[in-house]
Amino acid sequence: MQKQIRLNEDYQNQLRQEIEEASPFISDVTPVDILKAEYADNFKFSDCFEALQTRYKTVRRLRRDGNCFYRAYLFQTFEHFIINKTDTKQYLRFLKAIEGSKADLMALGYDEIAIEDFYDLFVAEVKKLPDISPAEAQQHLLKLLCNKEEAVYLIMYARFMTACYLKQNSILFEDFVGDVASFCMREVEAVDVECDHPQIIAITNYLGVGVEINSVGPKGNLEVIKLPEDADFDQGFRAKLLYVPGHYDALYQ
């Protein structure tokens, strides 16, 4: 059981710093054309972006820091509840899930003092949403979700709720992810770790807000995937996301 220890060349830190300097956490809305230009060298993607333009007009780019899915999902979901004040049914379902999450996590063995700071902040921010005027949505959310303080806590709590659903329903996931507890440690709760389909299925089910993922298909075509697939989720709002391998951005009509 020899432990190999190699020199850390600070490569990851350097990479992280370069990314930070190059892009904001969440950009302003930008015409989707920008994507076509960006991937112009990649012929495989060009059909996909042609098709995407017929569905969506603008995009918000997310920083590639491992949190892009969670940040985009929270941004669009919060934005929906600020702008669509009449969607009380889905909002109340969302709020109820969040308010119940501390008890759910503690039932799974999480310690109250380890999760309550995250929980308290998340609940408080979700309760504020109905009182924010639609005109202030963008300003409010860019401030809330683009910083190294509150935003880090909100995204971390989204990770805890993701782990919560995975553990509550471990029988549904263990064939895909192996031991669910260790999957959660490695792939959900670790800071800045990227998100894949099991995590997306978990958080969307837990919070009652689905996603529609527009992604590049195997032949370079546009593929639209809805998670969860259940038609129930089509009755309510779904966050609209663009997926290019390894990264999520937020789409707008």
């Binding site: 999480y110 310690d111 003092i113 380890a114 971390m156 440690m185 709760e189 670790a190 800071v191």
Partner: peptide
């Protein structure tokens, strides 16, 4: 858990 698998759900005691 002290490095790549650290989670804020852990505590000093854990």
């Amino acid at each position: 858990i002290l490095y790549s698998e650290w989670s804020p759900a852990l505590k000093v005691s854990s």
